[in-house]
Each structure stands twice: as C-alpha cells, then as structure tokens.
Computed example of a mutant assay.
Amino acid sequence: MDSPAERQVTETPTAKQRRVWDRYAPSYDKQIAFFERVQFAGGREWLGARARGRVLEVAIGTGRSLPYYPADATVVGVELSPAMLDIARHRAADLGRAVDLRQGDAEQLPFASASLDTVVCALSLCSIPHPGQAIDEMKRVLVPGGRLLLLDHIGSTWPPVRAAQWLLERITVRTAGEHFTRRQLPLVRAAGFTIVEAERLKAGTVERIHAVRPES
C-alpha cells in the first residue's frame, strides 16, 4: 500500500477529490449545517426556485438541495464520491422523491449534448480541479436557452477577508483541493453564457449566478 506521501505524488486531482469526499461524507451534513444557516442562508432555496424541467445537479453531494426543487422537475444528480452518493440516495428515499443519481465527474458529464433544461452546482466549483472545464461541460449538456444556476463561496471584496482566505488556501488546497479565492463569474462569461442574475453577499464571499445558454 502506498504511503500518504507516495499517494500525494501519484494520484490525480480527481482521484484526490474522490478520496477526500469519501472520507468526509459521514460528517459532511453536520459540518456544513452551520455554514448553510449563516453564510449561505437561503442559497439552496434560491437555486430551487429557478430550476425548471429536466434538472441536473452537478456534484450533488449528500443531496441537500433535493427538498427545494419543484415537484414537477425531473432531477438527475452526478457525484464523484460514492460515499456522498449513498447518503444522497437515502435522502431522496426519505423525501419520497424519484431522483436518478449517478457516479460521475463534473469535468466529463455522462449526458448527451443539449439534453437538459437546467444545470445546478452548489458549493462545489470551489473544489472541482478544473472549474472552467466543468462549466464548459455544463454548457454542452444544456439546451439552447437552458439555465445555469450556481452558488459558491468566492474571494471577498474586502481586502482583510480576502487576505485571510488566501492564507487559509495555503492549507486547504494542499489537503483537500478547496479554494477560497476563486470566482466563477468570469468563467461563466468566458464560456459564452448570458448572465441573468449575479449577486454577491457576506462581504462578497458568496455568489449566486443565474445564466442562460444562448439560443444560437
């Protein structure tokens, strides 16, 4: 068996993310609950209120957004971590909601082009190894006019907070692939989406984005 040092050298960024989230899965809901009440309050409700039709949630995690999707939406979820996906399956069953949950990579989505009406990604582009590639994939699977809905933590607009985030990243990027100074909005624009709504909250550390894939 490889030592931790050897594993860090040989494993890919995607494999590292799978390992990290498999390890955190049993405690994830308890750990994130406080932050969702305080820092990200109302974020999942905001996403759910804008989702329509055939909905894909990328990096669905333990399924914390499932209660907020419209009853008439058809929901599919993709998650890299099998352990997180198992919890999402239990949550869907408890809600009595039929959800197609699949193991998969945000950077190589297992869906046909132009096959979905809405793509959602919540609190995950901060740790996906290549977020631009993931956003390109989200665009590919959306129908023309389809909705992209994002919620994430980003680099603060307040310099002292951003400096603290940068320092924290020196640890979190190495140990868990977690970034605190990324911002997804430029990547969404670069991918060719039209921005419908974009708002920053909590000293600019939280961003919500509603964008659409152009018709042509």
Results as ranks from 00 to 15, higher is better:
residue 16 K to Q: 13
residue 18 R to H: 07
residue 19 R to C: 00
residue 20 V to R: 06
residue 21 W to G: 13
residue 22 D to M: 03
residue 23 R to D: 08
residue 24 Y to N: 14
residue 27 S to W: 12
residue 27 S to C: 01
residue 31 Q to Y: 04
residue 35 F to R: 13
residue 38 V to D: 07
residue 40 F to M: 13
residue 45 E to K: 02
residue 48 G to L: 12
residue 48 G to P: 04
residue 51 A to K: 09
residue 53 G to V: 01
residue 54 R to I: 10
residue 58 V to W: 06
residue 60 I to C: 11
residue 61 G to H: 11
residue 67 P to V: 05
residue 70 P to K: 10
residue 70 P to W: 01
residue 72 D to P: 01
residue 72 D to Y: 07
residue 73 A to H: 05
residue 73 A to G: 05
residue 75 V to R: 12
residue 76 V to E: 11
residue 76 V to M: 09
residue 78 V to T: 11
residue 78 V to S: 03
residue 79 E to C: 01
residue 87 I to Y: 02
residue 92 A to C: 13
residue 94 D to E: 15
residue 98 A to Q: 15
residue 100 D to P: 06
residue 101 L to A: 00
residue 102 R to K: 15
residue 102 R to E: 07
residue 103 Q to I: 08
residue 105 D to K: 02
residue 105 D to F: 04
residue 113 S to P: 11
residue 114 A to F: 00
residue 114 A to E: 15
residue 115 S to V: 06
residue 116 L to F: 04
residue 117 D to G: 11
residue 118 T to G: 08
residue 119 V to C: 02
residue 121 C to V: 14
residue 126 C to W: 05
residue 128 I to V: 15
residue 128 I to L: 07
residue 133 Q to A: 11
residue 133 Q to Y: 00
residue 133 Q to M: 03
residue 134 A to Y: 04
residue 136 D to T: 11
residue 137 E to Q: 15
residue 138 M to W: 11
residue 141 V to R: 08
residue 142 L to G: 09
residue 142 L to S: 04
residue 142 L to N: 12
residue 145 G to A: 10
residue 148 L to M: 09
residue 149 L to W: 09
residue 149 L to D: 01
residue 152 D to Y: 01
residue 154 I to T: 14
residue 154 I to S: 08
residue 155 G to E: 10
residue 156 S to I: 07
